[in-house]
Amino acid sequence: VGFSPSLRWQQQQVSNFSDIRQSIAKNRKHWSSQTLDDNVLMPKLADEEGWKRFCLGEKLYLGTSSCDPDEEPESALDYCKVGFPPFLSIVSRLNQTTLLMVLEILISWFEEREFVPQLGRWLYALLACLEKPLLPEAHSSIRQLARRCAQFRSTLESREDEKLPALNLLICLVARYFEQSDLADQP
């Protein structure tokens, strides 16, 4: 009680998310055809460890993060350390098979670790590009994500915790946009 979002906020997020997905569809062709910077080396499809490093950065992947992960990189090279953000030019290149695989990798990572800002950005971006109707394995994965978010939320001690909005957003989108209603926060 007191940690879950209002119904009005949830409805607004679903509406915004729907608009964003439509805009992504319009932008996909443009951004997927843009040349990536030389430093953006996307992992191969089955390179699970490579995707973790790519999205979350070496510091988190290696468990050596001691600085603010939101800190602005001083150069493009630093993205290797803090992870590449989900730029449209990157996520627009992912087909549905790759997208779902990366989503599963990150959810699996989250199952054993704490929530971090760059994880939230990537999960949101991947959900925004996940096409409906969902495959059965996608249903299972996003439900796992919502349950983990709720579990992690239950460990927070303050409503002011900066992780709370992100957790609520992900739960909201899985439950209300992707119609997993039994997982929704009720008013």
């Binding site: 879950s4 992504i24 932008n27 443009h30 449209l88 409503r159 909005p165």
Partner: peptide, 28 residues
């Protein structure tokens, strides 16, 4: 088909959308 440049999002649009959603959070 040529796209209208005004319809093309910035490369960081998804990140901005996420940050905006998170910032807008309100509890019940």
């Amino acid at each position: 088909e040529k796209s209208d440049d005004s319809d093309i999002w910035d490369d960081t649009a998804l990140i901005k959308a996420y940050d905006k959603a998170v910032t807008s959070f309100k509890t019940a």
